[in-house]
Structures are given as C-alpha cells and as structure tokens.
Design a protein around this nucleic acid. Sequence first.
DNA 1: CAGTTATTTAACTGAATAGGAAACTACACG
DNA 2: CGTGTAGTTTCCTATTCAGTTAAATAACTG
Lengths: 125, 125
Amino acid sequence: MSLLTQTLDDDRLDETFAALANPTRRAILARLAHGEANVNELAAPFDLTLPAISKHIKVLEHARLVRRTAHAQYRPCSLDATRLEAVASWVDQYRPVWEARLDRLDEYVGQLQPKRQQEKGPRHG
Amino acid sequence: MSLLTQTLDDDRLDETFAALANPTRRAILARLAHGEANVNELAAPFDLTLPAISKHIKVLEHARLVRRTAHAQYRPCSLDATRLEAVASWVDQYRPVWEARLDRLDEYVGQLQPKRQQEKGPRHG
DNA sequence: CAGTTATTTAACTGAATAGGAAACTACACG
DNA sequence: CGTGTAGTTTCCTATTCAGTTAAATAACTG
C-alpha cells in the first residue's frame, strides 16, 4: 500500500487521533494500561469534575480505545489497544522517512541502497 | 519510563494528534512523503478552496509536521517526520498491550518471560 | 423503602475548528 | 508600471469541544 492510497482506508483515524489529542484522555489510557479502573478511580488524579471525566471516557469508548463492562453500579473501563495498533501501523508508514532522514520517501521507495544521498541542490534561482 | 509518567513529557502531543485528526491534513502529509510540493499542488486533489488548504498547512506547520521554504512566490512544503517519530514512540509504549493481547501491561511489566500466558480466567461473577 | 454510592444526562458557556468569500501581499514578467 | 500567479489574511458562520453545575438514573445496603 502506498502512502497515496493510505487516505482511503483511514476508516476511523480521525476519531482516533481526535481522541488522543487530549492530555486527560491520554493519561486515562496510560492508567488503564495498568489494568481496568472505574470512573471514580480514573477521575482521582485530575482536577476535573466527574461529568467531565465521564465525557472523556465516552469519547474514548466511542473511539474504541476503551471497552466497558458493568459490575453493579460500577462501570469499569479497560484499554482496547486495537486502535492504538492502527495508529502504530499508520505512523509506521512514515518510518522510512525519519529513519533515512531523507524527508523524501520516493528515494527510499525507488532505491533502497544507501547510495550517496544525492543532494538535489538549492534551486532558488 | 513507565506509562504513568508518560503524561509528563507529552510536550506537544496534543498539537500533533490534533493536527493528525483530519483527513485532509493526513492526505497532505502523505503527498509530502513523496517530495515537496507547493500549496496549489497540495490543494489540487481536494474539493476545498485555497484558503482552506492554506490554513491546513499552517496547522501542520505549527505542529511541526511540515517545514516550509520560499522560492519566489512559491512556498513549498516538505515533510518533517520528527513529530511522527514522537507519535511512533508514544504509541509504541502500548505495543506490549496489543501484542500480548493481555490488556494488562502490569503482567507484561512484571514478568517478561513468555511463561505460558497464564489465563486470568473469566471473572464476571 | 430511605439513604448512599457510582455514574450519566441535561443545560449552559466559552473557546477552538473548519470552511467560504473577499480582499490583500508578494513576486515575476513583459 | 501593470498584469497574472501564488499564497495569505481578514471576516464571518456553523459546528464541535471542554468544562461547569444541577438534576437524574442505577444499584447496593440497611
């Protein structure tokens, strides 16, 4: 799959990235990586009201970054890493770009050999 | 670095994820992965006005996902993969979670050995 | 059933986003 | 200098977002 077609199958990537674009939500994910937690537990470290946390969780849930169950009046959350894996594979498409430090994937794609970096030269004349 | 401290150094991750949470901007990045391009070239595939694209580029530039230069009246953009690398390493923190399919990093952190996967068993009672 | 705990919903506010239209800047070219 | 080309800025609109308070729902507990 080329980087040009990548746009076609970014099914839910908008939603995923939008969910990740918030420090509270990333912190919630980090916490859930250590095991499931209910809403009050998740809210504890933050200077936010419970409804605010509840909404953040809803965003994460809707983005399928967390799964929820229900035990009595508790609604524990757990991490669902599937979408994180999707993020990883999206960003991994660009890995050659930063690894080669070429900033041109073309050259990487076309010719895998290291081959002298081939400066394009400044062409501002 | 543990997943709990990860929150502390997510310097510009908000901005980065927010910039990536848009299909037009991701498509622009994809295009730039093939080499630099100016604004009109970047705008061509989209059903958006030039100012709209210009603003998307500004978002990407501010998020340091693209770099810009100036040749005459052209302002070519090129991909800067540094922040993508940051995204990759952020998401890679979670790799053990989806690779082990445990949904509990604790167990991974505690005992790295493969050691028979140790099913926790269903505990919904 | 009354009360307590856990969580959500509703209603509202202020700020940020995405987009368009129109006007503006900057440069090249003749 | 005037015109075309490349791109940005300004202004405006509609939508979404993050947060609040207050009220509602849900389930356990005595």
